[in-house]
Nucleic acid binder design. Structure first.
Lengths: 195, 195
DNA sequence: AAATTCACTGAATATATATTTAACGAATAA
DNA sequence: TTATTCGTTAAATATATATTCAGTGAATTT
């Protein structure tokens, strides 16, 4: 393995360790020495790869941003089907790639937690999933596929559930995940949308 | 106001400030100086009321434990009605008394976050809500009121949603809360349980 | 092979934070 | 009124943590 590959691998070790610790302890509470220990290196070496704890946070956030783009840009039959597909996909991903759930928790932490640098909060806030799905919900309501009610509240309820599930799974992966249909039923209209 | 009352009031100021900051920043990330500032006192004075940051955490946890007892000990018509009443009550409480949502978030943080003293984790874990409601779900399934599926997964899905909602409301109270029925639909059986 | 680069460590430094302490004055008790 | 308690603060101390640095040896280049 040449030096470039080695360097890349080291960086990935650090990033994986940081993500894991940030979601388990929180960014502020995670010490450089925690990350260095988890990544099997000295504290000093970590600064060879990232000039500061905050820069590491920034890079991790950027990785997370790329991930949030993907799952919501897709083809779907109708508005309800959109949520069915997204939900099923998210739950599957969480089980198969623990990093999915972790990243979910991490991004929420960046958005919500006080003490995160404003610059980082801004960019995370700019990809707000709740607002993206509000429009889809409105359309689904017009077609009678999604239940009546404040679209923002419905979108919020859906994403809060996903968020809660991702958090629980990150901390307690031994507890079984729900089936996608159960979660979609939060927003599903009673009459027409039944499976 | 005599000294005893004054002392009690001061303690409450500290506890309220600590709860607010712990949920917004996390216990580890919250500085004594943050709490003291929020409670309008010098750092030193805080130690006159609590011998350490950890003792303060312990007292707050005990207050939270008392709160968790109440809402689940109640009369109910049937198993589904239980969840309808609890959910409606929780959502109402969250809106009317912000401390309800904060305490929810705080207790989950105590249970999940790495770096919380084991002694405290233990007691919080001992009042696991998920396990309490598993039995109710099993009974509801036998009566056809609650949908089929792994009772633990159903209980988990329900509480994860409540948890996600409490967190979102704590950080973003401007976003409208869901209606209780939407959340109950996670576990409601399709045929019999319709309203 | 010699020179150079660079990953790496452990100790040094700087800063931040929890906790202690000495001192002050107002409330209370004598 | 005098003595004592105690709520309060700001400074002092101790400890923890982020960051820097000097040095080492292995990999790479010349």
């Amino acid at each position: 393995m040449n030096r470039k590959e080695q360097k890349e691998q080291r960086k990935n070790q650090i990033i994986a360790a940081a993500l894991d610790l940030f979601v388990k302890k929180g960014y502020m509470a995670t010490k450089i020495s925690d990350i260095a220990k988890a990544a099997n290196m000295s504290d000093g070496l970590l600064f060879h790869y990232f000039e500061s704890k905050e820069k590491l946070l920034e890079e991790l956030t950027n990785i997370g941003l790329q991930g949030t783009q993907m799952p919501l840009q897709m083809e779907y039959l109708d508005e309800l089907n959109f949520f069915e597909v997204v939900t099923a996909q998210l739950i599957t991903f969480m089980q198969e790639q623990p990093i999915t759930a972790k990243m979910f928790v991490f991004m929420a932490q960046m958005q919500r937690t006080e003490g995160i640098p404003d610059r980082i909060k801004q960019v995370v806030l700019s990809v707000s999933t709740i607002e993206k799905t509000v429009e889809i919900i409105k359309n689904g309501q017009e077609r009678g596929l999604i239940r009546n009610g404040d679209p923002m509240a419905l979108s919020n309820a859906y994403w809060c559930s996903i968020q809660g599930i991702a958090e629980q799974f990150t901390m307690h992966p031994e507890i079984p995940l729900p089936e996608a249909e159960w979660i979609v039923d939060i927003i599903r209209a009673k009459s027409k949308g039944a499976i």
